[in-house]
């Protein structure tokens, strides 16, 4: 790898969307904060009640808008606040992994991880690692699209 290329990669600041479930992973992210574990300012957390709410189209939407990486976090299997919600997430996301390369998106831009409410350190580490991975892959090839605040009048 040439020096110029390496420099370019480290300059790239990825934009990552992270879905966190209210009960475990969002709490784990909070604990990272309370414990002051530092991590890159690359992620924007979108809170859902359960990771089971995340439907595949959300991930595709994110990539369509030029977001560089998407992370879904939920309770560990067996710990789900809604009993089995995360099991459905797991099944759904298996398909996403196989779908992404077919539409020209590196599947490593997407990740599903389980983070408990006591795993603040693991959360920070995950963000560090994932950010680095995205940096290595490089910016999304899709041009960033700016959003528009609209009303759902239905």
């Amino acid at each position: 790898m040439s020096k110029a290329k390496a420099k370019k990669k480290s300059e790239f600041e990825p934009e990552i969307l992270a879905f966190c479930c209210n009960w475990c992973s969002y709490a784990g992210a909070d604990l990272a904060g309370v414990s002051r574990f530092q991590y890159p300012a690359s992620i924007r957390i979108l809170r859902v009640m359960c990771s089971g709410r995340v439907q595949p189209s959300f991930i595709l939407d994110a990539f369509k808008n030029g977001i560089d990486g998407v992370l879904i976090t939920g309770c560990h299997i067996g710990d789900c606040h809604y009993i089995t919600g995360n099991e459905y997430t797991r099944e759904r996301m298996k398909h996403i992994k196989t779908l992404l390369p077919k539409i020209g998106i590196n599947p490593d831009r997407f990740r599903l991880e389980w983070i408990s409410a006591s795993e603040g350190k693991q959360f920070a580490e995950l963000i560090r690692e994932f950010t680095e991975n995205i940096q290595n892959i490089g910016p999304s090839k899709i041009t960033k699209k700016l959003g528009k605040i609209e009303l759902d009048l239905k």
Binding site: E15, L17, R53, F58, N65, G66, I67, G147, K148, E150
Partner: peptide
């Protein structure tokens, strides 16, 4: 709709 809008607004606002 709400979640999609949140996602769209991540990259910036037009």
């Amino acid at each position: 709709f709400q979640i999609k809008k949140q996602i769209e607004l991540l990259t910036g606002i037009d």
